[in-house]
Design a protein around this nucleic acid. Structure first.
Lengths: 146, 146
DNA sequence: TAAATATTGACAGTAAACTGTCGAAAATGG
DNA sequence: CCATTTTCGACAGTTTACTGTCAATATTTA
């Protein structure tokens, strides 16, 4: 059997996604390093910040597309570091909410101030139309596997 | 400071890249599991298969955008499993070539036969134009960070 | 050509993802 | 409303990345 034209492009895109994902993780670690954070912790902070309601560990995992266990590890470490606290969840005896502390909110604010000029600068040579297309294709791919 | 329109789209695309990358890794593990392989090993086989010349561990790492050390681990394990062998490199005393065995080539062929219909099927609802745009944007992003 | 620099494999340690299993708690469906 | 199924946290173990350092080897430069 042979790849269709689209199957071939799809395959090449996947290889590029793996590569870029790795590069961006390195870049994220670099941006957050001086704050004692990392790409992974940044994502957890972001998930909590973006949500209007408090989230449990399992909910954060679902938002981020990870396993409960991975997020649990990060959360335990971040609580230990004072970035977040566990809070009683009246709707569930065991599944506590994870809530950002002032320290956690402050850390996220600082990272955001670093990320914004970084994103603006790095996106300047890509057209808005192409960015929109890319985002929509990525979302379409994501839906295929959830 | 605020995100430009493009900065915002760029940021959303990055979050989606992380998510899709994770999903595709799971998918790759699923496709290769019955062959006793994994996404990571598949990538190593692919890098060797695609190259016309024999490659050293460090060269494979560069092609894949990983560290020498990660690939070294995979390579040692795959040599142990008979998928590849180390071969003397006349141009470098320490940096041996990594070469696929018949078993390694056969494994890659089987995976390819599985991957082709998978890619053809999963790309069928995305237009060729959009796939091309996505691939070119991803490559542009990759170039920013290498 | 000699010295400085870069690359490589080896080794040790860490981070962040995964899998699987368990019992408790919650949600669902007869 | 009770039994079944699903979700959740906890625990243990694995894989695949990373970092850093060392000595040996290659390459570049003065």
């Amino acid at each position: 059997m042979q790849h269709t034209k689209k199957g071939q492009l799809f395959t090449e895109a996947i290889l590029e996604i793996f590569k870029v994902s790795g590069q961006l993780a390195v870049e994220g670690d670099r941006l957050t390093k001086e704050l004692g954070l990392s790409s992974a912790r940044w994502k957890v902070l972001g998930a909590l910040k973006m949500s209007n309601e408090p989230l449990t560990v399992a909910q954060v995992a679902r938002v981020m597309g990870l396993t409960r266990q991975s997020v649990q590890r990060l959360a335990d470490a971040m609580v230990k570091d004072g970035l977040m606290v566990y809070q009683i969840n009246p709707h569930h005896k065991r599944a506590n909410y994870v809530v950002l502390t002032e320290k956690g909110k402050a850390a996220y604010s600082i990272i955001t101030e670093i990320q914004i000029p970084w994103a603006n600068e790095n996106s300047k040579d890509i057209s808005e139309v192409d960015l929109n297309t890319t985002l929509s294709v990525l979302r379409k791919i994501s839906l295929l596997f959830k």
